[in-house]
Design a protein around this nucleic acid. Structure first.
Lengths: 139, 139
DNA sequence: ACTTTTGTTTAGGCACACCTAAAACTAGAG
DNA sequence: CTCTAGTTTTAGGTGTGCCTAAACAAAAGT
């Protein structure tokens, strides 16, 4: 279940950006794949029960799918912050996106506490309310 | 060229541990794959010119292969240190191994400087002489 | 020298993820 | 209402990486 993560994350973000359902074409463009590849993958995710897919309509995350996608997204956001604020990388977005599904929740949580060490307050690690403000890149 | 990295890294370490050439069986065991899988992959790496393979003998890294493997190994070592010393994870070895090929050299170098920020001296980032002491796990 | 045992390679298959080209659908213009 | 332009899906094919089972080679035991 490794490459599926890219699609789940893209779907999660796209649902927030433009609402549900999300067309396969949108996903294909976002992930820089052929339209056919996106359709196929969405069908696979539908089989897995992570996505509800209606041909010619689009896809929407199911309960379990959204859960997984949210975790992925949080990891992605944390990684972005880490790469940008701590490592000062200009490619932070790409790196974060590609690594999100490989980084275990344990590592992600460690990074969260690390990130808030310098800050005054210490919010709950699992709530990303403050992070979600800037966490949906529009492109 | 993604899963090949696992084999290159294993080969690099095994060459240091037990000398060259390295049998496909050793690699298979190390990477927890079937013997057939290791043979196949080594053949592919030979085709790529990263490995020199003699049937029933074993495999040895070529110049380009060793170069790539060394980079991979350095990233792996840095990640291990980061996960162990900074994040205090007990699964640092596994995480580092799985992520080594996905982490760009840029990120790895950033981590090196980050790791030596607390230390008194500041060795050259690209030389891993001090790190190589403990960087070849025997199992 | 012969046979067994151990290790390695090939053969045949499967799953995943991608592509291009062709077919099928939808929606908008006339 | 039809026909066309754009999008989406299916068909067919490729590369990668893995597996089991069967063939094969080399080393060791008798």
């Amino acid at each position: 279940m490794s490459d599926r993560a890219q699609y789940l994350l893209a779907l999660f973000i796209e649902e927030h950006r433009a609402g549900t359902p999300v067309s396969t074409g949108r996903l294909a463009e976002r992930l820089d794949r052929s339209a056919a590849a996106a359709t196929e993958m969405i069908q696979r995710l539908d089989d897995d029960g992570l996505v509800s897919y209606e041909p010619y309509e689009g896809a929407a995350l199911t309960g379990p799918g959204r859960e997984r996608a949210a975790t992925l997204h949080e990891t992605y956001v944390v990684l972005s912050w880490f790469f940008r604020d701590v490592l000062d990388l200009d490619t932070y977005e790409r790196e974060a996106r590609e690594m999100a599904d490989l980084v275990s929740p344990a590592v992600a949580e460690c990074l969260v506490t690390l990130l808030f060490e310098d800050e005054a307050d210490m919010p709950d690690a699992s709530s990303a309310t403050t992070l979600d403000r800037e966490s949906f890149p529009d492109e």
